[in-house]
């Protein structure tokens, strides 16, 4: 049975493994950080958040300061889909961000029906309210 932990990552309860949600590639033990099964690269944030104002003329351009902030991009080693982007000061240890209790997860899902895709949840319908 698969649990859709994020849009990019699933946990297979039988094999207790992280998997890529796009290609199904097995990424490593579910009790460990999924990041260990991914590839990662460091980027200057300006490669993504490019300057909108001329960087030759201005100190602040809408692009983050690369001495203050770097991007770590994690992708599936098989299909190359991005699974996570981490914004960190240079050299800061990456977070072990998702650490689930796998035994509790198995017990929880033993009583649930398997899903074929993540549930979106209902649309938000605002309660009646007037504005002016």
């Amino acid at each position: 049975m698969k649990v859709f932990v994020t849009t990019a990552l699933t946990i297979d309860l039988e094999s207790e493994a992280w998997e890529c949600a796009h290609c199904g590639h097995e990424l490593g033990p579910a009790r460990d950080s999924y990041k260990r099964g991914l590839l990662v690269r460091e980027r200057d944030p300006a490669e993504v958040h490019a300057p909108i104002l001329d960087p030759a003329r201005y100190a602040f351009t809408f692009a983050p300061d690369p001495a203050w902030c770097r991007l770590l991009e994690y992708c599936c080693p098989h299909c190359g889909h991005l699974a996570e982007v981490e914004y960190l000061p240079p050299g800061h240890p990456p977070a072990h961000d998702i650490e689930l209790d796998i035994d509790a997860l198995k017990a929880q899902w033993a009583a649930r029906e398997e899903q074929t895709e993540p549930s979106l949840g209902p649309d938000f319908t605002p309660p009646p309210h007037h504005h002016h």
Partner: peptide, 27 residues
């Protein structure tokens, strides 16, 4: 995506080079 894979490294290997013992002294 192929470029992305080629430019990336396994996490444990990357981590060894990336992590510094303390923040930058300049900020």
């Amino acid at each position: 995506r192929r470029e992305r894979i080629a430019a990336s490294r396994p996490f444990d290997e990357f981590r060894k080079d990336w992590v510094k013992p303390a923040p930058s002294p300049d900020i």
